[in-house]
Design a protein around this nucleic acid. Structure first.
Lengths: 256, 256
DNA sequence: CGGACGCTTGATGCATTTCAATCATAGTGG
DNA sequence: CCACTATGATTGAAATGCATCAAGCGTCCG
């Protein structure tokens, strides 16, 4: 259901990862990293797995037997605190890798946000492939750098003190993902619930809802349905994401 | 001045990186990844550089000519917003790498927090070394995974809604860094200013100051000087970091 | 058609931001 | 060598924005 366009692997040719270039300047878009041969070699050790919406893929602390590569769908990587609060560390999309481990255990839990199709690559097999294949390793390095930058962007977002700024930044991330490839300004689809968004941006569910409305009222966004949004004013969005503090206050100050 | 113990490279044997194991379980501590030979090979293409406290190492958007490996000292990686606000993405220590790029440009600025000694490795040279050396590449992958986990932990910290929780988490990070190696409970040294801490945890400088005092009052910390702290109650610290919301009210509740 | 779930909306309290002044510390020059 | 000034840190008081509690509404799926 998620409109991933421009990608013509009908879940066939093997694992695929994409990232923005590291040292050689590109066009600013994510580009596929693996050659046909590399994909084929990885396909030999991978299996296709499917998860339905809300399915648990693994839990924090489980033995990390495999790494996953998304073909289609959206996954959330999260941690649950003792007091039940949930923090979402990342949303993962097609051509992303997930299954980060520490000393043989997954460092966070993963759950399917939408229906998901993915390659499952057992760790021993991957390890083996990596040892011998320097080019593949280099591509993985590029992908990891990409994920590192994304994690830093997320941390950046969470550093904002105002709810509007955080959500503006969130929409920029989303827009970057769904616009990637063509520069066309299309409608965005929100694959995740308000609650997931709240857990990702570090706000309460209600604050997210209110901020959405505020952004719509200000003419920045337009909701066609609850999960279908258009960005009307990309400039204002960027301004909100940049102006951290409570800036927009100057006008409309109520009398005490 | 920063007491980095247990590390016997008198800035000699070449670059060094350390990380917690990925798939093979270790002791829970960071272990050096590079062999003598690898270090020597990297040393051949690296130069030693020194920065004094507060020196700018590079700025966001500069051409990314080199990657750095810290021998001694502390560096902050940060971004400055149009409205002058500063977000610190990471503090970097000995055996860390920094200089992350995107399309040939650094993605954030780097500044020396203390006096710093580092190896500077030009990108073309590093690139060349990596292409041929599968083992070195594997070690870099491990290190990147480590940094990725750290970035996620940072995002986690920023997800906390209470100031006390964020600072408790911050101290846990710091303790993990300075305790690494021996399990001894020693005094912590804060290499960075209150302002830097504030920019790292996403709070105002004043909130940091007040929270420090609150933690001291509660018997969790003890400040010998402004930058010398002892963790008196590791348990309470963990509890605060875990109990996200305003929970810590139950215990030690002062009379109204 | 009904129930559950996700989302919106309202009212209140509190934590943190903000503004502002004072206090330490360290670094500098007389 | 000590006073002096910048810089960093603390503390106070007021205001604001978010969390929280609580209810109402829409929608999807059984």
């Amino acid at each position: 259901m998620q409109p991933r366009s421009g990608n013509d692997h009908p879940l066939a040719r093997g694992p695929s990862i994409a990232a923005i270039g590291l040292w050689q300047g590109g066009n600013g878009a994510r580009a596929p990293l693996l050659s046909e041969a590399e994909r084929a070699r990885l396909a030999a050790v991978a299996t296709i797995v499917r998860f339905k919406k809300k399915a648990q893929i693994y839990r924090e602390g489980d033995r990390a037997d495999a790494v996953f590569n998304i073909v289609e769908g959206v996954v959330k990587a999260y941690r649950t605190l003792p007091d039940k609060a949930e923090h979402i560390g990342a949303f993962l999309f097609a051509d992303d890798l997930f299954g980060l481990a520490e000393e043989g255990r997954y460092v966070n839990s993963a759950k399917a946000v939408t229906a998901v199709t993915a390659y499952r690559i057992p760790v021993p097999a991957l390890s083996g492939r990596l040892q011998g294949d320097a080019t593949l390793e280099y591509h993985v390095i590029c992908k990891l750098c990409h994920e590192l930058r994304e994690a830093q962007r997320h941390a950046m977002l969470l550093g904002f003190r105002s709810a509007l700024a955080r959500l503006a930044a969130f929409f920029q991330l989303l827009a970057q993902h769904q616009t990637a490839g063509n520069g066309a300004v299309q409608e965005l689809y929100l694959p995740m619930s308000r609650s997931d968004i709240a857990h990702y941006v570090g706000l309460s569910l209600e604050a997210v809802s209110r901020s959405f409305r505020a952004l719509a009222r200000r003419g920045v966004l337009r909701f066609r349905q609850k999960r279908h949004v258009s960005v009307l004013d990309r400039g204002k969005l960027a301004a909100l994401a940049a102006e951290n503090g409570r800036a927009g206050k100057a006008a409309g100050r109520p009398a005490p």
